[in-house]
Computed example of a mutant assay.
Amino acid sequence: MKIRLALLLCLSLHLVPSQAQEAIRVGVELQPYQPYSEVENGEYRGYARELLDAFAAEQGYRFVYTPLPVRRLLGDFLGGRVDLKFPDHPQWNADQKAGHPVRYSQPAAPYVDGVLVKPQYLGQGKARIRLLGTQNGFTPWPYLEDIRAQRIKLIQANQIESLLLMAASDRVDAVYLNPRVVTHQLRQMRLAPDALVFDPQLAHVEDHYYLSSIHHPELIEAFDRFLERRAELVAAIRLRHGL
Rank of each mutant, 00 (worst) to 15 (best):
M1S: 15
K2Y: 09
I3F: 06
I3N: 06
C10V: 12
L13G: 11
L13N: 08
H14R: 12
P17C: 09
P17H: 09
P17V: 11
E22V: 15
E22K: 12
V28N: 00
Q31P: 01
S37N: 10
V39L: 04
E40F: 12
N41C: 02
G42C: 10
E43Q: 15
G46E: 08
R49S: 06
L52N: 02
Y61S: 05
Y65H: 06
T66D: 12
L68Y: 09
P69R: 08
R71G: 12
G75Y: 13
D76S: 13
R81A: 14
L84D: 02
Q96C: 01
Q96K: 15
A98D: 12
H100A: 11
Q120A: 15
G123W: 08
Q124K: 14
Q124E: 14
A127V: 11
R128W: 10
I129D: 03
R130A: 14
P142S: 01
R148N: 13
A149P: 00
Q150T: 09
Q150E: 15
Q150G: 08
Q150R: 14
I152K: 00
L154M: 10
A157N: 09
N158Q: 14
Q159C: 00
Q159F: 05
S162A: 12
L164Q: 03
L165F: 14
M166I: 03
V175I: 15
T183Y: 10
L186N: 03
L186V: 06
Q188E: 13
M189R: 01
A192G: 06
L196I: 09
D199N: 04
Q201E: 15
V205H: 06
V205M: 13
Y210N: 06
Y210E: 04
S213W: 06
H216D: 12
I220D: 02
I220S: 04
I220E: 04
F223N: 02
E228G: 10
A236V: 01
R240D: 11
R240M: 04
H241I: 07
